[in-house]
Design a binder for these strands. Sequence first.
RNA 1: GGGCCUGUAGCUCAACGGUCAGAGCAGAGCGCUCAUAACGCUUUGGUUGCAGGUUCGAAUCCUGCCGGGCCUACCA
Length: 574
Amino acid sequence: MSRILITSALPYINGVKHLGNLVGSQLPADVFARYMRARGNEVLFICATDEHGTPAELAAAAAGEPVADYCARLWQVQKDLADGFRLSFDHFGRSSSPENHRLTQHFAGRLADAGLISEVMEKQIYSPADGRFLPDRYITGTCPNCGYPRARGDQCENCTKQLDPTDLIEPRSAISGSTDLEVRETKHLYLRQSLMRDELRRWIGTKTDWPVLSTSIALKWLDDGDGLQDRGITRDLDWGIPVKRGNEEWPGMEGKVFYVWFDAPIEYIGATAEWAHATGRGEDGWQRWWRCDLGAADVRYLEFMGKDNVPFHTLSFPATILGANQDGREDWKLVDYIKSFNYLNYEGGKFSTSEGRGVFMDQALDILPADYWRWWLMSNVPEGSDSNFTWESFQAGVNKDLADVLGNFVSRVTKFAAARIGTEVPEGTYGPAEEAVIEELTRRLAAYEAAMDAIELRKASQELRAIWVAGNEYLQAAAPWTAVKTDPARAAAIVRFSLNLIRLYAVLSQPFVPDASASMLDALGIEDAHWPTDIGAALDMLATGAAFSVPDVLFAKIDDARREGFEARFAGAA
RNA sequence: GGGCCUGUAGCUCAACGGUCAGAGCAGAGCGCUCAUAACGCUUUGGUUGCAGGUUCGAAUCCUGCCGGGCCUACCA
């Protein structure tokens, strides 16, 4: 048994996330966490909302709510959706928590003590009409390069040229449209990650087992241009974690807050502390997961995220951890494995929040159960390259894999048994046919476990499907509907074995389709779902005489008319 | 512009220097009738983007060309 810490990239607070967000972080992390728990490991699975930053403030303003209220409300929305998708977080926290305030300020103090913080006087655009400093991309104007009238201050979307807001012709606030913009001086803290370039490169160099996506992005940022750049970690905003140096005030930084990208990864730790406090554990309850000097030395820590998050998790956050560890008085846990994902597209294009294009988490659960989404998304997860959601593929995958192969197996076994044998698990002795299945499943289970251990989720889903198929093959060859007329004892043995297969499938499928798994176990009236170590023993688990029932259809098929309706409904504003 | 990834059967993907390049879906045929018109068996289908090179041997390594995607640092 190992101790495994799993974090999913934090969903940003400003609204319901779409399937593309879900597929690359929370969902694969959940599948892995469920698997690791099932294997008997001590797992802590942490997620939280990422609540700070300009977009949150603007979204709250647009909703006419105080930002704290807005975030509290949207946290609940996201929490309910996570529950709806059966995401098995041990804790779903908030980056605005008191725990995160304290930890973020603590880390800033540690970094300052280590000489890794510099104070930089810089010039930022201030908008009196909006009453705030504007991030580059919140300033729009005409591109000096191509004349595109809606270029953003960081980059022109039309000609892709990198811009500085002061380059724009007729710049205006993207929020209010105000052209009354001024350049103001403001002081900010920078994390001197450039000083840690060699140390980071050495560390990344040891991670030969990571997805290339993770390491190549990290190396690119380390070596591109002048190399890794220092990064501003404070902002002139109201909503955020006040800049402090540990418990002390930070002279000259009054009224400023930490940058969301500084405090968000620290919330992995913060949320663990929230969990410890919420569950009556003391400080050591979270420290034993995060402090190698306080009991976390044997923890294996894995992070799940989309590729856009990789630079912060391979460089900035590790720099924060390494910096805090520098004097040897504290020893914080560095990540051991970064599982990163490409993007999921929608019908050949991008998911678009602004255009309402694609399926969002709330809509998904409105139309179909979580298991359908979980299965299709994980069996098509963008591991190697970007992948594409189409309704046709979704319909085909769900109908074939879940309804026909798994659901129908459960249905044909239980219905046949109930009609011809009885609704109690019969006696029976296994013969060569069963031995052959046991041998095959022993091999296939090893392959499934190997794929899951390696977090190769597409491959794992294929292996799991092959395990389901083996049941249909067996049933076809064993033909209990024939045996029941000629050799009732044989028919009983086949039914006994098949009912045990359902139980085995429930156990093995639980990481991907937890609700269906629960329905299967419920139909068998059994609670013991421990992971098998011996397939032969696992297929003789059900007690003779135990009652079972015929469950409702596990997965209803999606017919063509329904699919076409979905296609039209989610195509987005024309 | 630079960097990274990628181009394998109609579709989605495996095979990561070595037996006839595999699997699922879709298509075709047969079988079964317990089951959600489900299942099983068999089968059609690929000069592995193109052109060179290295090697006893290349989808796999190298070079060039053509095509697709992503990233390029203060939105998160």
